Amino acid sequence: MSTITESVDVHVPVSRVYNQWTQFETFPMFMEGVDEVRQVDDTHMHWVTSIGGVSREFDATITEQHPDERVAWKSTSGPAHAGVITFHRLNDGTTRVTAQMDIDPDGFAEKAADKLGVLDRRVKGDMHRFKEFIEQHGFETGGWRGDVPPPGSIA
């Protein structure tokens, strides 16, 4: 299992950055290798990705989500992975977005990509493309402000 951590400072207020991140179906616009994300309901998504010419489909569940703070998920099918995106207000107009992911590559292409640092570079590129996307748009394309408590917590 590999852990990837990447941060980027976005010159947009935290609520707008968070709102955009919750628009999962826009991920293919700035994430390399993400062909489609379909949000099934508030906490379930279906992904179609490709890496090294290999296409994969998997489902993921949001395990925790708090507006302007964090979105955590884990895969429920396909390649094993989990992660959290955190949002840190640096000032009124700047937000630090940090992605931390644990990935267990599945198959030869993914394992080779991991060993060669392709996955690290892809996440870094995705974060920078997200920064450009939200900064250039000047506004978020939508937002979901619901709260998903962590598993086992009392709501």
Rank of each mutant, 00 (worst) to 15 (best):
P105Q: 04
D9P: 02
A155T: 15
S50H: 14
D68Q: 10
D126M: 03
H11I: 08
I154K: 13
M31E: 04
S15C: 09
F139T: 12
E140N: 11
E36I: 08
A82C: 12
K131T: 06
G33F: 00
R70K: 14
R70M: 12
W144M: 08
D102I: 06
V84F: 01
P150E: 07
Q136N: 15
R89N: 07
V148C: 07
P149W: 05
S153G: 13
S2N: 14
D59Y: 07
A60V: 09
D68T: 14
I154R: 13
E140T: 15
A80R: 05
D92I: 02
G142R: 09
R121L: 09
G142A: 11
V54T: 12
K115M: 14
H66G: 06
G143W: 01
K115H: 13
R145F: 07
A99M: 11
I62D: 00
R96D: 04
T94G: 02
E132D: 12
D114V: 06
Q100E: 15
G52E: 04
G83S: 05
A60Y: 03
L116C: 03
T95E: 04
G146R: 07
M127A: 12
I51K: 00
A113Y: 03
G107S: 09
F108T: 14
F27K: 09
V40L: 10
R96T: 03
M31H: 00
A112L: 15
F133M: 09
E64M: 10
E32L: 12
H44C: 06
V34I: 13
T63P: 00
M45S: 13
T3I: 14
I62K: 01
P79C: 06
T43N: 10
W73Q: 03
K115D: 10
E140H: 08
T22P: 02
P28D: 01
V54Y: 03
M29I: 06
S2R: 15
F30S: 02
H11C: 09
G117A: 08
E57R: 14
E135T: 11
V118D: 02
D59R: 01
P149T: 06
F30W: 09
H46E: 09
H128N: 11
R145A: 13
D68C: 11
E140L: 03
V71A: 06
R16G: 00
G125H: 05
H46A: 13
M127Y: 04
S2D: 13
P28G: 07
K124C: 06
T49N: 02
P151Y: 08
F58K: 05
D35T: 14
F133G: 03
D42P: 01
H11K: 12
F30N: 02
M127C: 11
V37S: 01
E6I: 09
V34S: 04
P28V: 08
V118K: 03
P13A: 11
Q136F: 06
W47N: 01
G53P: 08
K111I: 04
L90I: 12
T76H: 05
V123D: 02
F108P: 02
E36T: 13
R56V: 10
N19F: 03
R70L: 14
I103F: 01
